[in-house]
Amino acid sequence: MWVPTFAVLVAFAVPWPLWGVDRVVAGLPVWIWWHVGWLGLSALAFRAFVRSGAWERGMGLDAEKRNAGEGDCGPDAATDGGPDTVIDGCERR
């Protein structure tokens, strides 16, 4: 559901339906108002996306676990098997 939403948000941030329209409203061309309003709408949509938990689901993470792990040293923050320098997750928070 979010994929088409984002596609629409990106596509119509450019005021295509107002192509060639030159009406001036409240001191600015009307298509500038469209753009301003659209970015405000995008910010609200992004906020809803983050709040709905789709942020984690989109990456295949369990939202509940992830949120619980935030701020404290949840089990997912701890270790990794690789040979790389692993900096302890907890210290960073």
């Binding site: 984002f6 948000l9 990106v10 941030a13 450019v14 005021p15 500038i32 753009h35 970015l39």
Partner: peptide, 18 residues
């Protein structure tokens, strides 16, 4: 012309955010 606002706003404000 001021259309540059729309180009930059779209790419930076929305597409880059995604």
């Amino acid at each position: 012309g001021p259309e540059w606002l729309v180009v930059m706003g779209t790419l930076d404000g929305v597409l880059f955010a995604v």
